[in-house]
Design a protein around this nucleic acid. Sequence first.
DNA 1: GACGATTGTGGGGAGCAGCAACAAACCCGG
DNA 2: CCGGGTTTGTTGCTGCTCCCCACAATCGTC
Lengths: 401, 401
Amino acid sequence: MRRVHVAGPASRSDLANYTGLNRSTVGDLVAELTARGLVHERAGLRGAPGRPSPIVMANPNGITVLAVEIFTDSLAAAVIGLGGRVLARARLERPRDGSSPEATVARLAGICRTLLDGRADQPPIHAIGVAVAGVVRRTDGSLVVGPNLGWRDVSLADLIRTSLGLEVPVFTANDADLATLAEHLRGAGIGCDDFVCLWGEVGVGAGIIAGGRPLSGRSGFAGEVGHLPLSPAGRLCHCGARGCWETEVGEDALLRRAGRAGSGGPLAVDLILAMADAGDPDAISAIESSGRWLAIGLATVIHTLNPERIALGGFFASILPHARDALIRALGELAIEPLAVATIVPARLGADGPLIGAAELAFEHWLDDPASVPLIDRPAWSSAADRRGATKEVDATRLAI
Amino acid sequence: MRRVHVAGPASRSDLANYTGLNRSTVGDLVAELTARGLVHERAGLRGAPGRPSPIVMANPNGITVLAVEIFTDSLAAAVIGLGGRVLARARLERPRDGSSPEATVARLAGICRTLLDGRADQPPIHAIGVAVAGVVRRTDGSLVVGPNLGWRDVSLADLIRTSLGLEVPVFTANDADLATLAEHLRGAGIGCDDFVCLWGEVGVGAGIIAGGRPLSGRSGFAGEVGHLPLSPAGRLCHCGARGCWETEVGEDALLRRAGRAGSGGPLAVDLILAMADAGDPDAISAIESSGRWLAIGLATVIHTLNPERIALGGFFASILPHARDALIRALGELAIEPLAVATIVPARLGADGPLIGAAELAFEHWLDDPASVPLIDRPAWSSAADRRGATKEVDATRLAI
DNA sequence: GACGATTGTGGGGAGCAGCAACAAACCCGG
DNA sequence: CCGGGTTTGTTGCTGCTCCCCACAATCGTC
């Protein structure tokens, strides 16, 4: 039920159909959610015969969470309300100076406080979701290793909680996984239960939704497809192995093939795209070559997971229009015919993906158990003691997941 | 609860702990299952303080299913009882003569009838599970394509049902997926929620358990890893593509490297293993080469799925003792370090895997809903009308899955 | 042989959800 | 403008599942 609320407004009878519950039960539940301030009801639209069914919609201010993102090149934060509405947002460039987790979180806390101060008259944040470029341990949400950040074994959740001085639960996960979750719920993967999202920047990673659920693997490393050994005689990868997929389809590979090695960054890629638009044969052939290598890795993913749809994000979304033909052609040669039904689409949420996914992660707990949201006699947040008690309980259940 | 019954005997208090249910509730449920003849209770073992807890164990004759297997080289059938007990079994060589589905099923029906006749005094079969070497459509259980059988679009379930004249539901699935399910429940993958089983014979395929559930993909093709494009400059595969993994790690590749191309079959492989045992350097190097290629594909699987454990079955299990060192060494070079935690083990169930998995598939329906098993006033099977009615209902729910 | 520990048993009750009948609100046709 | 048909919300009742609690049974141990 809560799920439907996070997937858009719906009439009561739609909800009854969707959940398979009785009209009476739906009515009771909606009443309870209204009492807790989680949903609004609006007069239903007429036009059909029969009594009009009220439209139930999520109340963005019913639950609000803080979503933050720690990337190699940027920090970002947003306040996101129920229903996925972005209520406030801020982004900051981050120099690649190998700064410590503490310093980075301090800067992050700065923008967060700015966002929160702008909402001082609104109900406070219910939870914090963190998207970080690295591997996160599922059991306690700590960062095991963030290769591009140069961090290792950081207890990010505690760091952020204390740095912000907020006594709310903090949920942490990998950025690609969260962006994939976001695309699955509100982007290119809506309604698709076997979905893969491939993210390409300097490195390459994927997020996987299998059977409607995120697939994280034993320790959260699933989807590290950047290091598939696809090119046995290929170049040395920074991971130490030879011929990783990343060395053939990453940004650097495209720049190299276009004769612009060394000049990193999205601007260089944009230049090559512009050249290809103008008909430059070297640029076009470089992009097509990336497309063919993309197909080789995608064939691997398709044969292993048989997804219904694959979304390409980041740098891959940019080159997709130019690389599509070469990619599809190569896929047709590599994939067993009936498997090739996976459709390739660009990601839709762009740079907001990880933030929206982090928010979704933070919402999860309340969506699982909306009864834990206090009743409408709101100023519950005026009592610090109550809040702390509630937080503790939540933390315990989180650890038990 | 039923799940625990199929995973071995357990005391009542164990069940209460495992399910989180109350002692009273467990008592009620066990009583109901006993009334339906699904479980027995035996005096609990003493030795601990406190009142001894009765041991609950599955009753093999409570539900019995017929499991059949249609392979390229062999046909097999078994009668399997609740708890996974094999009550009767038969296997038959199948010539690779491209015989039709009808002829094959007729031969299969022969051995099935022999098995069933030997149990004429026992309660009849409750369901049929079919393991077939090919791709099966999940919605209706028909065979989409069986490349090695040379079949296409065969409605196997109906064929088998009419051929045997039994009005029971028939469940069909891919052989590798079922063998993996079997290994997960009762073999090398017990208690492992992120598990991959790699089957090598002439072709190569994998079954995947992700997050405790079978991963079949959009249309059941997941795990077709034999055709991963890992060797761009490699040999032509019978699938039409170039450099499929299969061409480097299949039986034929080993025979080729050992200088015995053409002489197919498990006997040829055994010969090479014997030569390696005797210290023959060519045989050893051929096996090690297979081990290295195995590692390349496994690295792909590991980076994509991050399994906790990988079981090698069929031909791979045979060469594992000799190939292990080369495999582990190559994996160490290819895999990002923390990922390499996946342990590689041989499959445990051997040739029975697909049959046991097929039985598990057939049990599934009753395990989901034990209440649908008639009460102990058994001779319910004396009324053909009742049986047919029940079957129809079951079929409807199966289609709705 | 008494005591503590552990577990099965039975009655009462809370919570969730379905069912059926009724009321409300809409469209449409006369 | 009004009644029929249709769809949907509302209300009271019922049934099911499972928890809680008190009690009895059975063990090891002192």
